[in-house]
Write a protein that binds this DNA or RNA. Sequence first.
DNA 1: GTGTTGTATCAGTCCACATTGAGACAGTTT
DNA 2: AAACTGTCTCAATGTGGACTGATACAACAC
Lengths: 127, 127
Amino acid sequence: MTNSPAAATMLPTSLDLSEAPCLRLDLAAPDVTAAVSAAALLADPTRSAVLAMLRDGPHCVCEISAALHERQNNLSMHLARLRDAGLIRRTLIEADARRVYYERDEAACAKALAQLFDLLAKSESRR
Amino acid sequence: MTNSPAAATMLPTSLDLSEAPCLRLDLAAPDVTAAVSAAALLADPTRSAVLAMLRDGPHCVCEISAALHERQNNLSMHLARLRDAGLIRRTLIEADARRVYYERDEAACAKALAQLFDLLAKSESRR
DNA sequence: GTGTTGTATCAGTCCACATTGAGACAGTTT
DNA sequence: AAACTGTCTCAATGTGGACTGATACAACAC
């Protein structure tokens, strides 16, 4: 009855370092702006699905729109955000000048991945 | 004067595949829910900075709060979201039972990274 | 020319979520 | 016991961003 809701979720691991607590209140805030920007782009299902679809080569807007069941104007906005971030680029298909094809910029994708890697990988793995 | 704003941003790369356009309107939508969930967690500056701070070992809430200049209750909510996702966990420091320490769950972080890797890495690199 | 298709952009609406402010609770100190 | 510190939770507010609807434009077919 005196059970607090906070105690219910308190399931800590025992870490037995019996050294002095010695608070560090002067720690510097890490710069994570690049990783946050990359993550924000991937945090939308439509944008992530676009990047996934383009892994196996270019596709035109109508193909992507049909596959994702997304309205064309919404998809166009998401494509613009990915394009502004440099992760995808337009591609001309000579035999089909009417449609707009998009392809991934693998170098930009690798760079974004590296920024997320720096955030999530173990300390020994980084650098 | 007849310059359209769309044409201004049209800077495509020349990709000379003169095969038939052959639209694929039956493409399957890729499943990106796991990667999107991981990215959504990282898409907030506070949460990303917490993960970055915990790379070099556990820290208590007040240390993180001071370093990030975040109000404690906001930080507590972000910590709860990272904890619910399994990326961090509470840690007991015996010499300092008053404070709550958090540490990264490296296995969970590696799993999240793998999901993002699957989305962003080149096709040859995946699987 | 007109009509149709494919894509982009804009204004407006809506909603998830980050923040604020207040309060509750546990552990420590006196 | 009271006072204080550290952390968590809740209700209310504010806002970025995703969606809707409409429109504009280019390329092609007629």
